[in-house]
């Protein structure tokens, strides 16, 4: 369930790695869509709001970026689905989120990576993926679940948690990228010294990354699927692998990065193995949390192989593979 720490390796030599840009294809039939991951001429440049070189406190930058992000809801491009809907006018994209932000959980937990816990975890409702096995599917798929999110009030709660012994404040979902303006506003109300964790599915856009640059100390990013076929079948998400890899490479350069992989029954060879091999080759030394506590939640039963938990031999095989590749497993 919880793996031991392996020998650390030197940081990645990122000049040697890279991800090729290419057209993003939609789910329906491979129609090329606009390139999402590179800022085009019609995308606003956020360079002047970058953390580097401005000297402005994080809270100030976060407040300004929250304002910018809120305006961007009129043409939502926060994630790689690139829906470009006007959420301010009531239009919904694939995540179904509008301009209202809700949360379904806010509490201190100790189930995340040991170096991050106890963590005050705030889970925002709504997600841009449709993982049939999502353990919080009812709330994650429904942006109207839970209660209204007041960034300032939640920041007060987070401060109480910090004073009570929490080591980090973690924003998650669902997928917090969907609610980027509220996430940034939340950051703006938090103490400058607070250690902030961005728990993400790593399917965000380049625009989202720019807005997030310097805001969170740690990116805790899922790399769920090792191939696009499994991603499409189990989470209805296109072009998954390329986009996640690009985000992980970016995150490793701009913050601390911990990559999570939830081991799924029957997916050691098709998903974990390619993920592990890519991490070993492209992000050597990156912290990896291999989680084997899968349980068949939500709509997992739609997929025969997901109707059970991970077996002991599967778990052992996955750890063996990680060790043979020299991955830096963290508990």
């Amino acid at each position: 369930m919880i793996c031991t720490v392996q020998e650390r390796r030197p940081p990645a030599r990122r000049e040697e790695v890279g991800v090729q840009s290419r057209d993003v294809r939609d789910c329906s039939g491979g129609t090329p869509k606009r390139e999402l991951q590179r800022a085009g001429p019609d995308q606003p440049s956020l360079g002047s709001f970058g953390a580097a070189g401005t000297g402005a406190p994080r809270s100030v930058l976060a407040r300004e970026r929250a304002r910018i992000a809120r305006a961007m809801l009129a043409d939502c491009r926060f994630c790689a689905h690139d829906c470009r809907v006007n959420r301010l006018a009531g239009e919904n994209g694939l995540c179904h989120a509008g301009s209202e932000v809700r949360f379904f959980s806010a509490q201190t937990e100790v189930s995340d990576e040991l170096e991050l816990t106890p963590a005050f975890n705030v889970a925002l409702s709504g997600c841009d993926l449709r993982c049939d096995f999502c353990i919080t599917g009812a709330s994650s798929w429904n942006p109207r679940a839970g209660a209204g999110f007041d960034a300032r009030a939640m920041a007060k709660q987070a401060k109480v948690a910090l004073e009570g012994g929490a080591r980090t404040i973690q924003l998650l979902g669902g997928e917090p990228t969907v609610h980027l303006p509220a996430a940034l506003e939340f950051v703006s109300w938090l103490p400058e010294t607070a250690r902030l964790v961005w728990k993400t599915n790593a399917y965000g856009s380049a625009t989202a990354r720019e807005l997030l640059d310097g805001m969170f100390d740690v990116w805790l990013a899922d790399f769920k699927f090792g191939n696009d076929a499994c991603a499409q079948r189990l989470a209805k998400v296109p072009d998954y692998v390329r986009i996640v890899q690009e985000n992980l490479l970016w995150a490793a350069e701009h913050s601390e990065l911990i990559v999570r992989h939830l081991l799924m029954p029957g997916h050691v060879e098709c998903c974990w193995q390619p993920v592990a091999e890519w991490l070993a080759e492209n992000l050597p030394g990156v912290k990896v949390n291999l989680r084997s506590g899968f349980w068949p939640a939500w709509q997992a039963a739609r997929h025969p192989e997901l109707r059970r938990t991970v077996s002991g031999p599967e778990s052992a095989r996955a750890v063996d593979l990680a060790q043979s590749l020299g991955l830096n497993l963290v508990p």
Binding site: F104, S105, T108, E109, I135, T136, G293
Partner: peptide, 26 residues
């Protein structure tokens, strides 16, 4: 799952006695 004052953890107890936990609170 509730955003109220109650804290929530979820357990899955397997036939072999193994317990899986989600949202483990202190």
């Amino acid at each position: 799952a509730s955003p109220g004052k109650d804290q929530v953890s979820e357990l899955l107890i397997l036939p072999d006695g193994q317990i899986l936990v989600h949202n483990l609170t202190p």
